[in-house]
Design a protein around this nucleic acid. Structure first.
Lengths: 186, 186
DNA sequence: ACATTTACCGACTGATTAGTCAATCTATGA
DNA sequence: TCATAGATTGACTAATCAGTCGGTAAATGT
């Protein structure tokens, strides 16, 4: 693991726990095991670090989504597959989800970062567009469906993260998916 | 307007625009037109201010929800009424929504605040509990429905706030509500 | 009228922190 | 072997900021 990755890892851990204001760059450097100056060699500012890290995690999430996807399956099966991949990733990467949620609505993300994130979402759009043409889902603007899908995903994830016993974990995930799917299917 | 309210107002405006780290208490005091020390007379710390403001806004939101509600109407009508009240409040109080979203997942909210917020949600729970008994909605844990309702509400609001033309505003709101309702109805 | 509490002021400080910089080290390639 | 570029270091600083404090003014109660 190179120094830049070490910094990413340390930053993720500290930011997700203490927030932007609560984590000085000096602590990030220390935890990463590098000198203070090294951090600013790789990132021009603290905000830059946040933005880079945010994009990195978003990319990882999109990648996870499409890993086990099969074009031949129908939309519902594919959507559920994405649903499951995302949620499992989230449960296994608590700090990453907390970070993403914490900075999603923060003023630290630049417009550039937001635009890049939108580009990443394109992949999902294409899938939905096809389904809409094939009359499988209601005539609702994609954007709206996408926003709601994301929101509901975060909803289940938060719900699961706060649950103490995990016995009916799968039941919850299924319920939540049904709620979503029944909302959009024709 | 007393000084405490002036501070709330100034804090809301600055925090929603620049975040916690981006707004020094000195600027809040200046914008509020009070002395630096006055702020710390009313709030023991900057974090306390955030927490108080957050609770205040949540209370306002719950109040708005139940303003025009009629017990005699059926669940769907009542839910839609809440839906509309919330969204309209949000569109008319942009800064407040931005603040609420920004701090919802921040590390600045104390456990106490979170608990108090949960108490506020009780009112919604009771309504849903009745509906579940009367078999009007699917057998899904309330908590999950509540989380998803909230998430979807934020979803539409964000969507609308980023829309440039407001021509089909009502259409979007209706679509979004249908998505939600179809997700939970029996 | 007096006493006591509460609101308010604003200059001040101790501590913190983002970012700099000059120097050293490492890697690559010709 | 030497030169050049990039990586790394850590001591340093200029600026900022949360919260304090001693004192005044206003409100409240008796």
């Amino acid at each position: 693991m190179n120094k830049k990755e070490q910094i990413f890892k340390a930053a993720l851990s500290l930011f997700s726990e203490n927030g932007f204001h609560g984590t000085p760059t000096s602590k990030i450097a220390k935890l990463a095991g590098v000198a203070n100056g090294t951090l600013f060699h790789h990132f021009t500012s603290k905000e830059q670090l946040i933005n880079d890290l945010y994009l990195e995690l978003k990319k990882e999430l999109v990648e996870v989504s499409f890993l086990d996807l099969n074009d031949k399956n129908n939309l519902e099966v594919n959507l559920k597959q994405i649903w499951l991949s995302n949620i499992n990733w989230a449960l296994e990467n608590k700090a990453k989800v907390i970070f993403l949620q914490q900075f999603l609505n923060s003023p630290y993300l630049t417009e550039d970062t937001k635009k890049e994130v939108d580009t990443l979402a394109m992949t999902y759009y294409q899938m939905m567009e096809r389904a809409l043409k094939e009359n499988k889902i209601k005539k609702i603007p994609f954007d709206l469906i996408y926003v709601q899908a994301t929101q509901q995903m975060y909803g289940v994830i938060n719900f699961l993260l706060e649950m103490e016993d995990f016995n009916n974990k799968n039941e919850i995930i299924d319920h939540a998916f049904d709620m979503f799917w029944n909302g959009i299917k024709t």
